[in-house]
Design a protein around this nucleic acid. Sequence first.
DNA 1: TTGTATGCGTTATCAT
DNA 2: ATGATAACGCATACAA
Lengths: 356, 356
Amino acid sequence: MKNKYLKSRDIMAQSKNVTFADIAKYTNFSKTTISRYFNDPNSLTVENQAIISDALEKLNYKENKVARILASGKTEFIGIIVPNLFLHYYSEILNQILSTYETFGYKFLVFVGNENEETERRYIQELLAYKIEGMIILSHTIPSIELASLQIPIVTIEREDRHVNSVNTDNYMGAIQATSLLARHNCDVLIHINTPTSEDIPAYDRIRGFKDFCEDNHLNHRIIIHEMERTHESASMHLRSILSELEQEYSGLKKGIFISNDTHANILLNLIVRKYGTLPDDFLIIGYDGSPVSKEAVIPISTVGQQIDKIAFEAVSLLVTQMDERKKRRPAPLREPVHKMITPVLIRRETTEDRD
Amino acid sequence: MKNKYLKSRDIMAQSKNVTFADIAKYTNFSKTTISRYFNDPNSLTVENQAIISDALEKLNYKENKVARILASGKTEFIGIIVPNLFLHYYSEILNQILSTYETFGYKFLVFVGNENEETERRYIQELLAYKIEGMIILSHTIPSIELASLQIPIVTIEREDRHVNSVNTDNYMGAIQATSLLARHNCDVLIHINTPTSEDIPAYDRIRGFKDFCEDNHLNHRIIIHEMERTHESASMHLRSILSELEQEYSGLKKGIFISNDTHANILLNLIVRKYGTLPDDFLIIGYDGSPVSKEAVIPISTVGQQIDKIAFEAVSLLVTQMDERKKRRPAPLREPVHKMITPVLIRRETTEDRD
DNA sequence: TTGTATGCGTTATCAT
DNA sequence: ATGATAACGCATACAA
C-alpha cells in the first residue's frame, strides 16, 4: 500500500518535491535513466535526452544534492576553521579560498575559531558529521599531531604544521627582502620589532631571516621582541615606549625598522608623524603582509606582500589532490607531509625612500 | 541475501562506517532505539542510555548528519552571499553571522558574489540544491523581487529590500547624528561627500538625513556626489580634487565634512595631513561605519559606528524565526516583509574636536 | 519504553 | 541503451 504513513514534512509549506521518480513516471523511463541523464548523458540517445530535459522544465525539477551525497558518499564539502576575520589577512585568505569554487567546485563550511581548544574540537566534529572531504585550518589552537590523527585530508596555512600538509609564505625570504632593502639605504642600525613568536610557526622565520642577514653582513642590528596584546590601544602604548627608547638610544643615527606586520607599522608611523608632522629622514620603516593599511597609511608604507591569492589557491589545490587520491581504489596516501612555500613580493613605498 | 552488491565505496580507504544498525546489533536494541538515544534520550531508561553510550565508545561511532538530513528534511544550513570580503564591513558581518552558530546551531555555506548576476544565480541554485533552510544576502546584484520568488526564508542586509525581510542600520539617524555633531561645533558650512547611490538602498538615507537636518535647521550646506571607483588610487585622486575645490570655495570658513565611509574619510584626512602636517582647525571630519581604519588613522577619525554584532544577530534571529515558522504544521508566512533597524552609535574622536 | 515498517532521493550493481 | 533493485544511514508513524 502506498503512502501508508503521512509524514509531517509532506504537509509542510514547501509541498512535495519533484524527484527522479516523478520524472521517470512522466517520461516512462526508469529512475536509473533519469540519473544517467545527469551523470552520464552520453549514454542516452539525443532524443531521449531532449525528452527528459523537457520533463525537467515542465515539472520544475530541483536537484537534491543531499540525497546524492548519501548515495555517492561525495559531499564536495571542505571545512574551514579560521581564527578570526578582523585581521585583513584572514578575511582575504578566506575570500580567496571561497573563490576557488569556480575552479574546483568544492563548497565551504566555515567556522570562526575562538582560541578555545574544546570549541574548535566541537567545530571539527560537526564538520566531520557533515562528511566533509577535507579541511583547511588557519587557526593555531589545535596541534598538528592531533589534526593528523583525524584521518582526513588537511592543509594548514601559516601555523604549526609538523604533521600535516601546509602552504606558507616564505617568511625567511620575506625577512631577507625587507632587511636587505633597509641595508641598501645604508642605515646605521637595523631594528626588527616583533611579538613573542613560537619557533614552530612559520612566522618565526621572519626573525631568523632578519638575524641571519644582519649577521652574515656584519650589520649593526637589534631585535626587539615585545608583547603587544591584540588591541590597538595597547599596541599603540607599547610602540610608543619602544619608539622613545629608539630615539634615545640611536639619536642622530639612521634607523631602518622592519616591523612584523603592517598594522603595527602603521601605528609606529602614526606616532612618528604625529610627533614630527612627517616621517623624518632618519627613520625607514617596512612592514609585513601587504594589507590595505600599508597602502592607505598617511605615508604609504613599504611592506613584504603576501601573495594571498596564490597561497589560497595552492592550499585548495593541494587539498584537492589528496581528496582525489582518496577516491581511487588503491589510494597512496602521502607518507611525508608536504609543505609548500609561496614567495612574498617586496613592495617599495615612501617609508623606505630616502627623503633627504 | 545480504550485501548482494558490493559498493566501490566500501572498499575505499575509510573502510566502513559504524551505523545505527551496528550499534543496534551490538546492544540488542533496534535502530529506532538508537535513534531515540540521540533525538529523545529521556524516552530511554537511564541504564539503557548508558549501555548505548558505552557501545558508541566501543565501536567508535561517528554521526552522519547527511543521512539525518535526508530522513528529517532539516539541514540546519543557511546560505550566505556576500559581495566581497576586502571591505571590513562585510568581513565583520560575516564574522558575526558565523559566530551565531553558538546560539542557533545553524551551519553556513558561504559564497562570495562577484557582481555578476548569472554567477550569483548559479550560487543560489547550488545553495538550494543543498537544501539550505534560509538565506542571508548582502550582495546587491539580484533584485529583491527575484529573491522573494525563491520561496525560501530570506533576510538581506543593507541592500535593496522592498520584497524581502531585512536588517539595516538606521542610516537616517546616523546621518542626523553626524550632521548635528558638526553643527554643534558651529561650522560655517556643512559638506556631505558621497558616491552615486540608488534611492532604494538603505544607505541613501545618509544623504537624506544630512539634507533634512541642514534644511530644518537652516544651515549652510553642500552635497557633493562623486564617483570614486573602487581603488584607493582613484578615490584618492577624486578626493584630492574635491579637497582643493573646497579649499578655494570655502577659504577661511570652518568646514564640517560628513563623508560616507571611513575609508574615504581616511584618505581625505591623509591628504590634508600630508599638506599641512596636521589637521587644521577649519576642518572637521566625520566618517561612517566605525571600521578599524577610523581608529587607526593618523588622527583618529570620528565616525558613525555600525553595530555590526547586533545587525548580524538580528539577521540570523529573524531568519530563524521564519525557518521555525515553516516547520510548523500550519505555517503562517509573513504577509509583509519585515525591515528591522539598528541604531548606529556616534563615535567622537579627534577629527571633530575643536583644536584651537 | 521499545520495536517494525516505511520513506527520504539519489547512486551503484547487475541484468537485459 | 535501459531497467529493476538494493543500498546510503537515519527519522518517523504507528503498533505493542
